[in-house]
C-alpha cells in the first residue's frame, strides 16, 4: 500500500451528509447543508442491515431496502422517515430507549419548511444562549407532544429536512413555542 486511498463518490457524499447531521445536532437551530436534497442521503449515510427503519413513503422505502435495513412498524424502528408527518400522535409511537440504554431512543427524520411558520426558541446543549428558529409544515401539536414525551435521558432525536437543509433537535434540546 503505497498510495493514499481516494474516497469514492459514495464515501464523499455520505461523509459530507454525516458532517451536516452531526453539526446540526451539535448546534440545534443552526441550519446545515447536505450535499444532496431529500432524505435519501440521510438513509445511505446512517443505515445498514443492523438497523430497523420505519418508512411511510414508498420511494424512501426502496432507499431503505437498498441499505439492507429491516422495514418495521413505527414503534419498533430505530429510524423513522416521513415525507410529511400525518399527525402529532405519530410521535407517541417512537421508541424512547430506556434509562439503562438511552441510546436506543430512535431518530425521526421528516420534511418541514425551515425559516417560515411557528416561531420557536431553543435552549440546551449546543445553544449559546437562546436560539430562535421558524418551522412550518409539521402537524398541530407536534411541539407539545414532543415536550410531553421526552423523559430525559430517554427520548428521541429529530432531523427536519427542507431540500438540502437540515435542522437537528437532540432530545436534550428544550423547545419553547413563542
Amino acid at each position: 500500500m503505497t498510495t493514499h486511498p481516494v474516497p469514492s463518490d459514495f464515501e464523499t457524499r455520505t461523509n459530507a451528509t454525516y458532517d451536516a447531521l452531526m453539526w446540526a445536532l451539535s448546534r440545534p437551530g443552526l441550519i446545515r447543508h447536505m450535499p444532496e436534497t431529500g432524505q435519501a442521503g440521510v438513509i445511505e449515510a446512517l443505515l445498514d442491515r443492523e438497523c430497523k427503519a420505519h418508512c411511510a413513503d414508498p420511494a424512501l422505502a426502496s432507499s431503505v431496502a437498498r441499505t439492507g435495513a429491516a422495514l418495521v412498524a413505527s414503534d419498533h424502528a430505530d429510524h423513522l422517515f416521513f415525507d410529511s408527518l400525518p399527525d402529532a400522535d405519530t410521535l407517541e409511537q417512537i421508541n424512547l430507549g430506556s434509562d439503562l440504554y438511552p441510546e436506543i431512543g430512535a431518530t425521526l427524520v421528516c420534511n418541514a419548511v425551515l425559516g417560515q411558520g411557528v416561531h420557536l426558541r431553543l435552549s440546551g446543549p449546543g445553544c449559546n444562549g437562546p436560539v430562535d428558529v421558524q418551522v412550518a409544515g409539521l402537524p398541530d401539536g407536534f411541539w407539545q407532544n414532543r415536550a410531553r414525551l421526552m423523559r430525559y435521558p430517554m427520548g428521541f432525536e429529530v432531523f427536519l429536512i427542507d431540500g438540502a437543509q437540515v435542522l437537528g433537535l437532540p432530545r436534550s434540546c428544550h423547545v419553547e413555542v413563542l
Partner: peptide
Amino acid sequence: REIRRKMLKAIAVPGC
C-alpha cells in the same frame, strides 16, 4: 455508519 449512529446519540445525550 455504526460509529456515525453512535456519535449522534452521544451528542444527543451528553456524557452518556
